[in-house]
Structure formats: structure tokens, C-alpha cells
Design a protein around this nucleic acid. Structure first.
Length: 530
RNA sequence: GGGCCCAUAGCUCAGGCUGGUAGAGCACCGGACUUUUAAUCCGUUGGCCGAAGGUUCAAAUCCUUCUGGGCUCACCA
């Protein structure tokens, strides 16, 4: 692709002209002081004199950055430079800089990097500027930035050239700064509570910890088929067996599934496990952790997501899966024209079947019809009803804990003491989106073996998103895992919420896109070199 | 994978219905200007109209296919 155009050629000529003048267009011998940038950025124009009032004893600032806007006159100019979020204005005068330097400056465009040394004063427009006693070109850009007024609007260009997007599009850099604050808040919160941060393998030979399709790869030296991890869960629990009673990992997981506003094939998850705790412990911890995080970022335990105000004041409402399915169906009944389920009608497999059959629910929702066909037993069926009719109709103005999931859809969770058809598990929903998933861990190895077997059977029925039978994990449970609860929190979705972003692509620096320029070279599963 | 929409100058967009050889603003280039905030004024330059086929005397425009993207549905417990 030949994108060498006239503009680029002109820029290269300018760079050569700077070289010809004995200057370095890629200099790296000037100290830009961040503290000076901060100081100038923080100056009060009211307390500062005009240019004529600046005395020689005034503080001298060494500032610099990328030129974000330029106003050139015949023999003077203003350049607004940006460095680490600070924007400082430089005032350049030919009288002060001399002909040579001012001539060099005239080659500068928006997007270049420059630096200056000088005193601060207040302009006639009432803004602070540093009058350059000394001026330096630091780096010249070959490509110019997008138009300053409209910026980069094309979403494809924004994601493909994130380096341009970050410079140009207001708020983008802030999203990623906030994301970093979210992650460090989570780390600090867990560290303070004696959790140990660990790193477990991303190259797995056995798929587990979630229900999802993995990416496949191959290790040559061992001639071993491997899968990128879909979740770190089973390794983290092995560590609890080993005595790291409080562990966590923040890391990338990979799921070979579709892309959407809520899904990127690689995403970041926090998973933590807490020995001698149960899912009630984690509900309290989650309320505390997230409401504290929202308060830290927003100043109060409240935020607005896509025009929906959400109040994180604790305690948060709780609904059982059955209640949420019932409530959702009742609302859906009004919207879609069928009759709401009767009291307790969803409590048995027979009742459920009769209801779905009577109201012809499979005609109301194509996706539901598809899933309903492959479900077996009360638990899977209730979960399907909740997922298709309940989830999106959960209350939106508050975070909601959905509890008491069926054991049939929770192969790693501990059964409830009072009802073995249910497990000690919750999911946290905010604005109808799943943010966290947690449960008391199943630590009975015999039960775990049964659950893995049930997964294999589901796979035989055509469910391609099941877990493998992990024999070593069962062996670890036989060595003994203390009573434990664990939780996973999607960092990307949490960041979306806190930054009011509608698409996961806007909280991931480089979301997956098809390669530029059409067809990418297809490589076989095996690595040809090596 | 299905449906809808988009692709024109470096960037942001007109033009398209109704076919007649390509427009604007900003940026860039040249000139004027020693306090700008989207500086101003004057003068230029810049395009395989995403790609390939087709219809036509003639295609940015109509048709088909392809490529890339967006939204949405499905999939994602």
C-alpha cells in the first residue's frame, strides 16, 4: 500500500532542512522537567504579571511536549505543548531567540515535540505562557495529526491507530488511566487483606474453570496440543490446597467466541480465592470492594451508566435465580403477550415444562428455543429461563446479587446444605450486565468427579462448551482443600461501567480486528520454523 | 453466521434518489502579520470516489461480487 503522499514528502523535506541547519530532528539531550510542567500548569494567572513585568529573578521553567496547537505570526508565535496530561503554552519571539532559531521553529507543525526554557507571564488573553529564552526541537513527526477540531471519528481508524486516537480523541487516555486505577485499587484492596498475587499458566492442556471454546495451539518440543486458558480457576484452587489460603490473579483469559460490545476474545479477569470463607463472605466483600471503588472514582457510591443512574449504597438487593426468572417472565409476559407463570410453577421440572409448552415460549425467542432443545433437567431449564427472560429485566438502578443457581449449571460450586439441587453461588449484575461470578467452592472430590462426568455427558449431547475432566484437580481435592469461596470479576466490564463506555473495545487498548489490507496469511496449527 | 448501514483529499464531510469527467472546511505549501485560544487576511496545491466485474455513448452515482468497519440479532451458563 503506497501511502507516501505529498504531505509526507513535505515533512521529510522539512526534517532534512533541520538537519541541514545543523540541528537534530530526533534530539534526546534536553531535560523536560515534569515538575516544571506541573508548576506552570498550576500557576494562577491572577497572581502573575504581564510580559513586561517579568523580572530576571523569576523562576525559570524547563518545559516541553507534543505541540497540540500553534498560532504563528510573522515574528512571534504561541505553541501549546502537552506532556503527561499537562498542557503549557510557549510564547516565542524572534527578538529573544534570534533569526536562526526562529527560522528553525517555523518548520514546526502541530504534532512535533519541542521544548523551551523561560519565565512565565500572563498573556493579553489572560492565559499563562512561558516566554522562550531558549527553544529546542525534540522530535519531528513525519505524519501530521488529524484535524484538531473534528479529530479522528472513524472507529476503525481509532482502533487500528490507537496511538493517534490517544493523542487526538479527548477522554480516551483518561479511560485507560482510570482502568489502571481500577486495577491498582483491586490489588491494594486484596493485598491489604493478606491475599497473595500469583501467576498461573496460560498454556493449558486441560480446559476448565468456565464453559467456553478455547484457542488451540501446539508446543513443538513436547509435541503437545495446548489451549490458551479460558480461566485460571482450577490452578488457583490447587494453590489453596497447597496452603496459599488467600490467592488472586489478574490476568488475560482467552475465549474463542464471537465479538460484540461485551466480548473480546482476550479479556482480563480478576479471580481470587479465600479459604475459610463462603459465598456470603464474598457478597459482603464485593459490596465493600466495589462501592469503595465507585466512591474513590466518583466521589460517592453512585454512577451513571449510559444514562442509567446506579446507586451502589450497600447492602445491595438479592434475588434468587427462580425469583429473577419469575419476575422476568412476568415482565416479558406483558411485553410479548403471554401469561406470567403461576406461583411455584417453575419449582419443578414438570411445572416448568408445562408452562413453557402452554405459553409457547419457544416461539417468543429464537435463541431460547435453540437452547431449550439441548437442556436437560430442572436446573438447566430454570437457568435458561433466567438467562433469556430474567437477566435483561433485572432492576437497573441498583447492583443486584442473583443467588441460588442450580447445581446443574455450576459444576465447580458447593451444593446448598438444605437443597442439593442448588449451589452456594451468586452473580453480580449491574445494568443487566454480569460483572462478577462467585461461589463457595466444591471441595468434596467425589462430588467433583460426578460433576465432571455430567459435563462429559453434556458434551455428548452436543453442548460444546463444557469442561474437560480434570483428574489432577480431583487428586488435589483429595489432598484436601479447606472450605473456600472464590470469585471472578471482569476487569474490562467493570471499567466500562466506571468509565461509562458502551463498548468493550473502548476499554481495551488494542481490540481484536481483522488484519488491515484484506486476507491475512493463514498459518497451519503447527509452527513451521523452530 | 443473519439483517441493516458505512467506505469520496492527511482529517471531518457534501455530491448519490434523478448517470454527463470531483466539491467544501481544516491541515499542508507560498505571501502578510511581534499576544494566539478552531487566530486573521491573500494565493496555490492536493483524489484510481475501498477493490473487481457488469449495465451504458458515458458510472463516485445504477447492478453484482469481494474486502474492511459500525450497529443489531444469534452464539457467549
Amino acid at each position: 500500500m503506497d501511502d507516501e503522499n505529498r504531505l509526507i514528502a513535505q515533512r521529510k523535506q522539512k526534517i532534512q532542512a533541520i538537519r541541514d541547519a545543523g540541528l537534530n530532528p530526533y534530539a534526546n539531550d534536553f531535560e523536560v522537567r515534569l515538575e516544571d510542567m506541573q508548576a506552570v500548569d498550576g500557576l494562577d494567572p491572577e497572581a502573575l504579571g504581564g510580559e513586561a513585568d517579568v523580572g530576571d529573578d523569576a523562576p525559570e521553567y524547563r518545559i516541553g511536549g507534543r505541540v497540540m496547537s500553534l498560532a504563528k505570526f510573522g515574528k512571534a508565535a504561541f505553541a501549546l505543548v502537552r506532556h503527561l496530561g499537562h498542557e503549557v503554552q510557549i510564547y516565542l519571539k524572534r527578538d529573544l531567540l534570534g533569526d536562526e532559531t526562529f527560522k528553525a521553529f517555523k518548520k514546526i507543525e502541530r504534532g512535533d515535540f519541542v521544548a523551551a526554557v523561560g519565565h512565565a507571564f500572563v498573556t493579553r488573553q489572560g492565559k499563562v505562557a512561558v516566554r522562550a529564552q531558549e527553544f529546542r526541537i525534540l522530535t519531528m513527526a513525519v505524519r501530521s495529526l488529524p484535524e484538531k477540531w473534528h479529530g479522528l471519528k472513524d472507529p476503525e481508524l481509532r482502533y487500528r491507530q490507537r496511538y493517534v486516537d490517544l493523542v487526538t480523541t479527548p477522554g480516551v487516555a483518561d479511560v485507560f488511566r482510570t482502568r489502571a486505577r481500577v486495577v491498582s485499587h483491586l490489588r491494594r484492596y486484596l493485598d491489604e487483606r493478606h491475599f497473595v498475587e500469583v501467576e498461573t499458566p496460560m498454556l493449558h492442556t486441560v480446559v476448565g474453570g468456565a464453559a467456553a471454546k478455547p484457542f488451540l495451539s501446539h508446543h513443538n518440543a513436547l509435541d503437545l496440543d495446548i489451549k490458551l486458558r479460558i480461566a485460571p480457576e482450577l490452578y488457583l484452587k490447587r494453590l489453596v490446597v497447597g496452603g496459599l489460603d488467600r490467592v488472586y490473579e489478574i490476568g488475560r483469559c482467552f475465549r474463542n467466541e464471537g465479538l460484540s460490545r461485551m466480548h473480546n476474545p482476550e479479556f482480563t479477569m480478576l479471580e481470587f480465592y479465600m479459604g475459610y470463607a463462603n459465598y456470603e463472605t464474598l457478597m459482603a466483600l464485593t459490596e465493600d470492594l466495589i462501592s469503595e471503588l465507585v466512591t474513590e472514582l466518583k466521589g460517592e457510591p453512585k454512577l451513571t451508566y449510559q444514562d442509567q443512574p446506579v446507586d451502589f449504597t450497600t447492602p445491595w438487593p438479592r434475588l434468587t435465580v427462580a425469583e429473577a426468572a419469575h419476575a422476568g417472565l412476568t415482565l416479558a409476559a406483558g411485553e410479548l403477550g403471554f401469561t406470567a407463570p403461576a406461583e411455584a410453577e417453575l419449582d419443578t421440572e414438570e411445572g416448568l415444562w408445562a408452562y413453557v409448552d402452554r405459553e409457547k415460549l419457544t416461539d417468543k425467542d429464537e435463541g431460547f428455543a435453540e437452547v431449550w432443545k439441548s437442556t436437560k433437567g430442572w436446573g438447566e431449564q430454570l437457568a435458561a429461563l433466567f438467562e433469556f427472560f430474567g437477566e435483561e429485566r433485572l432492576p437497573a438502578d441498583r447492583p443486584v446479587f442473583v443467588v441460588d443457581y442450580p447445581s446443574a449449571v455450576s459444576p465447580l460450586s458447593r451444593r446448598k446444605d438444605e437443597n442439593p439441587e442448588l449451589v452456594d453461588r451468586f452473580e453480580l449484575f449491574v445494568c443487566g450486565r454480569e460483572i462478577a461470578n462467585a461461589f463457595s467452592e466444591l471441595n468434596d472430590p467425589e462430588d467433583q468427579r460426578q460433576r465432571f462426568k455430567a459435563q462429559l455427558e453434556a458434551k455428548q449431547r452436543g453442548n460444546d462448551e463444557t469442561m474437560d475432566y480434570d483428574e489432577d484437580y480431583c487428586r488435589a481435592l483429595e489432598v484436601g482443600m479447606p472450605p473456600t469461596a472464590g470469585e471472578g470479576i471482569g476487569i474490562d466490564r467493570l471499567t466500562m461501567l466506571l468509565c461509562d463506555q458502551a463498548s468493550i473495545r473502548d476499554v481495551i487498548l488494542f481490540p481484536l480486528l481483522r488484519p488491515e489490507g484484506g486476507t491475512a496469511p493463514k498459518t497451519a496449527g503447527k509452527d513451521k520454523e523452530a
